[in-house]
Design a binder for these strands. Structure first.
Lengths: 257, 257
DNA sequence: CGTTCCCTTGAGTAGTTTCAATACTTGTGG
DNA sequence: CCACAAGTATTGAAACTACTCAAGGGAACG
């Protein structure tokens, strides 16, 4: 049996999986794997990179979850979640300073690479450069979906959408299980992702539970029928560029050469 | 007197103005200008590029405004606005298909360049490549701010924020006037940007008008005291990467070499 | 076995939507 | 020039959604 991507590339095997990883040659996968110069583990709620902080390295999320968040005096706003395989602050390569914090959600394992190394790749392998660019734009596409989520959905639908997104992204990298997934999320996190108070989030979760769509208990999300939850949360995975109308897998020759 | 950027580069003179345009050499500015192979004008509400549509060119907005929008059966969701100097669908270079529509807001003038040309630049000028990447990430940063806008603000503050953002972005490219700006926006557009109904948006605008913070009348936005409006709309322009804690202008040598 | 963090519930208030109706503006053709 | 149509803006009232303040319950960890 073929070894899994993760076995062959223990640090970056999940990068772009389910999306354009198929468009990467073995050499390119090896190049990406070799970018990681240092591996580190963090406890929960640790800040990997803070807003406004100058930085000269980027972080690959190997295991666990992370959040993009902005903290003000009185509140925290979550603007994104990251799952294994995500180059969580690759955009810092071009931006130099982030407008938000990157914080761990539960224990995580990450790999660091320097911007120096990335710059080399940029100049020597235009194809990989483009894939890295693509991966940062994937985050932007997710941001747009979140804006729409806020614009159109009520609290219970928003969480449903969040559940669907995380699940689907885990599916892409081969970590999505059947029936239930476990995360370090608490209700306050979900509230901060959906722009509601924790109290209201609790009521939204109760509603989902009562209606049998999804059950959230201390980080474990149980969903009897994902299709139904996706319908309820108006979730169409196309924006994740893995499949559907926006997917590129069938047209790898187009543009990514 | 020195000719303005726009006089010297009539098609792309506003590109990255107020942000990293200062980091571009004269040759680079000329290169970008030469990318534009075709200039076109459009009437209002025309679709430049539709969701899911394969594409092999990108569009520079020269004059006027554009919207990033997603249309469903019953509603339209606006996820971004573009002003002159914006490479409105540069990200289609890496994504190939957009997850949203790009539509004109009022009459516009645009310039087209092929992905073929962009690819050349990518491979021959890593510095420019990086600036182009930067410009797409700027959009992502704006998306994140919009998510926060939705998460934390009430309708009147959200419009206030939209007004501040558009104004500041016009400032950057030298089109921001004193006291008032004129746009082709209607109340329905503002509602679609803020995730409210047009009716509620009307009440929000009335509130702004009554409180003396801002007056919106048929596209013309009048603001007696921008600082005050910015405070009300919790608007901190840092996320636009032109100045403030995230600005790079004083540190051009860092990273962008 | 108690502390701490996380979750739950109730009641009153604030913000938003919906439905319904009414004006104002602008452009067009008679 | 007026009449009309289409698009845009405004207002009122009732229903819904979410927030705040306040109190209590449960699980995990030492």
């Amino acid at each position: 049996m073929m070894k899994s991507e993760r076995d062959r590339f223990p640090l970056t095997g999940h990068f772009l999986m389910g999306r354009l990883r198929d468009a990467m040659s073995e050499e390119e996968k090896a190049t990406v794997e070799s970018l990681i110069e240092e591996v580190a583990e963090f406890e929960t709620a640790e800040e990997i990179l803070g807003r406004g902080q100058l930085c000269d390295r980027s972080t690959m999320l190997i295991d666990g979850f992370m959040l993009r968040a902005v903290n003000t005096q009185d509140r925290r706003y979550i603007v994104g979640v990251q799952v294994p395989g995500d180059f969580v602050d690759l955009h810092a390569f071009a931006l130099k300073r982030l407008d938000h914090d990157i914080v761990t959600l539960g224990r995580v394992k990450v790999g660091f690479t320097t911007h120096e190394r990335i710059k080399d790749v940029m100049q020597t392998n235009p194809h990989l450069a483009r894939l890295m660019w693509f991966s940062t734009l994937l985050d932007a596409a997710i941001h747009r979906e979140w804006i729409m989520k806020m614009e159109q959905l009520r609290a219970p639908q928003r969480v449903a959408h969040v559940f669907c997104e995380i699940w689907k992204r885990l599916d892409f990298v081969g970590l999505g299980e059947e029936g239930k997934i476990t995360t370090p999320l608490i209700q306050q996190d979900l509230a901060d992702m959906c722009g509601t108070t924790a109290i209201h989030m609790n009521r939204a979760l109760t509603e989902l539970r009562d209606s049998g769509l999804a059950d959230f208990r201390r980080g474990t999300i149980t969903v009897p029928d994902r299709k139904q939850l996706e319908k309820y949360g108006v979730f169409d995975p196309a924006y994740l560029y893995g499949e559907g109308v926006l997917g590129l897998r069938g047209e790898l020759s187009i543009g990514m050469d």
